[in-house]
Structures are given as structure tokens and as C-alpha cells.
């Protein structure tokens, strides 16, 4: 038996975990499950694709670094995609979610996110068609690293990026004033207000962080798999399952749960069959809801 599936699971778990951070923050701070989160991911991936194209036209080549399939253009494009997607999320909030949130019916906001999700996804399909796209056509050679596991340089780079983003996120939430304000608001909105915390500022920070991480995850999926309008929808259920398994509001929980789901999916592909991969997130979700709805690190049922 090859242990390669462990690495595959780790990679897809990292993508799920990165996306689930946004889901868990949106749920614990804005108090709704955002069905458009996967589509923010896809928009981020396409924003980077457009930027890579533009930069490639200027620079005149892919400019790959070392053994990687990508170079400075994709790195710059990823940063652009993160900023762009954050802007898109803020725009959506201003146009739609903030107005509905003000009416105080959480579930209407969920429904609006569902409508926005359909519109965003199909707009991508209209603009870019449904056929897959790639940042680079360069072939990657997987290097053996022992125990029959092989890894490509791209995979190494993106795992390092994920680890850096997650660590940075954790430090931000625990060490910075804005991060503390976000945690305070998620724990007790009324007390946060009388403490002097500006809700609008917390809401903005939540969208920016959630969307930027979604865009990063989108670029990761785009680099390692492919870019499709449906890429976000396919990851939505695993991301929700990770947010709930990790315990709503817990960033380390979401990341750990993302890895658990990624590994379980890879195991299912290995032992059951690739076609059943998408069922894993559902099985995990149902088990958590039936056994321990607060998840691994959740404190209260929300």
C-alpha cells in the first residue's frame, strides 16, 4: 500500500482549512453561514489568472523560480487576487448583506448569500466559460521523499504558504488589537459595543481576512489542480464541515478539521473509490451534528 494518499490528503486538507477559516469567522462574527464563500475562492483564482496573463504579457514569459511551475508573476498576482477578492466581499456586504443584517433576520442573509453565490458563479462561467484553465502548462516532476511518497516543488511551496498564512492569522487574532476586537465581538457583541469596539471595523476586517484567505486557497487549488467556475462550489461542503467539526469560531479548529477532512477524503479515494470522495464531508458533517454539534474546539452551541 502506498502512503501517497497521506500527502494528497494533506494538500487538499490545507486548501479546505484555508477556506474554512473564512467560513468560521463569518459565522462567528457576522452570524451567518455564507454560501457564497466558495465562489469568493473561485473569483480569487480567476482574478489571479487574469493578473498572471497581464503580467506575462508585460514580462514576456512565465519567469519560473527554480523547479517551481510559477514565479514572481503568480506571487504578485496572488497578492492582487487577495486584495481584489477582499474588495469584492466588501462590495457584496455593502450592497446586500449589511442591509439585510440590519433587519435582524439571520436566515434571510443566508438566503441572500445563496442567491449571490449562484449569480457570482454563473458570472464566472459567462466571463471565462466552464472549461478549465491553468496558470502554467509547465510539467512538475514529483520527487520521492521516502516511504513511497512523492511531492512536487509546487506542493512544497504551497504547503509552506498555507502554514505561513495560518500562523500569521493565529498571531493576528491573538496578538493584535484588531484581532482581539474580532474575538471579543464574536464572543459578546453587546459587550463589545459598550467596550468601545467599532462593529463596522470588525465587520470589514472579517470580510477582508475571510476573502483574502479564500483567494489564496483558490490560487492554491488553481495551481495544484485546475481553475474552474465550479471549484468553489465543490469545496463548499468540505469547508462548512471543517468549520463545524473544528468548532464554530475556532481558527486552529477549522484548520485542523480541514486537514482531517482532507485526509479522510484521500483515504476514501484510496479504499472506497474516487467517485465517493465528495460524500466524506457529508458523513463527517452528519456525525458531528449527531454526536457533538459544538465540534472539537467549540465552547457553546451557536
Amino acid at each position: 500500500m502506498s502512503l501517497q494518499f497521506l500527502l494528497d490528503g494533506l494538500i487538499s486538507g490545507a486548501m479546505i482549512g484555508l477556506g474554512a477559516i473564512g467560513v468560521t469567522l463569518t459565522y462567528s462574527i457576522l452570524r451567518f453561514s455564507n454560501f457564497a464563500h466558495g465562489d469568493l475562492m473561485a473569483w480569487g483564482a480567476y482574478a489571479a489568472l487574469v493578473a498572471v496573463g497581464a503580467l506575462g504579457a508585460i514580462a514576456g514569459g512565465p519567469m519560473a523560480i527554480g523547479a517551481l511551475s510559477f514565479g514572481l508573476p503568480l506571487i504578485l498576482s496572488t497578492l492582487f487576487a487577495m486584495v481584489f477578492t477582499a474588495g469584492l466581499a466588501l462590495l457584496l456586504d455593502w450592497l446586500l448583506f449589511a442591509r439585510l443584517r440590519a433587519r435582524g433576520q439571520a436566515i434571510i442573509v443566508v438566503m441572500a448569500s445563496f442567491g449571490a453565490s449562484m449569480a457570482l458563479r454563473n458570472l464566472l462561467e459567462f466571463l471565462f466559460s466552464s472549461s478549465p484553465a491553468y496558470y502554467s502548462r509547465a510539467l512538475q516532476v514529483a520527487q520521492p521523499i521516502g516511504s513511497g511518497i512523492r511531492i512536487t516543488p509546487d506542493q512544497v511551496a504551497l504547503l509552506v504558504m498555507t502554514a505561513a498564512l495560518v500562523t500569521g492569522m493565529h498571531l493576528f487574532l491573538t496578538r493584535s488589537q484588531r484581532g482581539r476586537e474580532m474575538r471579543a465581538y464574536s464572543q459578546n457583541p453587546a459587550l463589545a459595543r459598550v467596550t468601545g469596539i467599532d462593529v463596522a471595523r470588525v465587520v470589514r476586517a472579517t470580510w477582508v481576512i475571510g476573502a483574502a484567505l479564500a483567494a489564496a486557497a483558490g490560487v492554491m487549488v488553481g495551481t495544484l489542480v485546475q481553475i474552474r467556475p465550479l471549484m468553489g462550489l465543490d469545496l463548499l461542503l468540505p469547508m462548512f464541515a471543517a468549520a463545524i467539526l473544528g468548532g464554530i469560531g475556532s481558527v486552529p479548529g477549522a484548520v485542523l478539521a480541514g486537514l482531517i477532512i482532507g485526509l479522510s477524503e484521500a483515504a476514501a479515494v484510496m479504499f472506497v473509490g474516487a467517485e465517493w470522495r465528495a460524500a466524506v464531508a457529508f458523513v463527517i458533517l452528519m456525525s458531528v451534528l449527531l454526536v457533538k454539534p459544538t465540534g472539537l474546539f467549540g465552547v457553546t452551541e451557536r
Partner: peptide
């Protein structure tokens, strides 16, 4: 909470 029903039906 009602969100869990939404997520589960999606699943």
C-alpha cells in the same frame, strides 16, 4: 440553529 439545517440540506 437554523444555519445547520441549511448546511445539511445542501449536503
Amino acid at each position: 440553529k437554523s444555519d445547520y439545517l441549511a448546511i445539511t440540506t445542501f449536503g
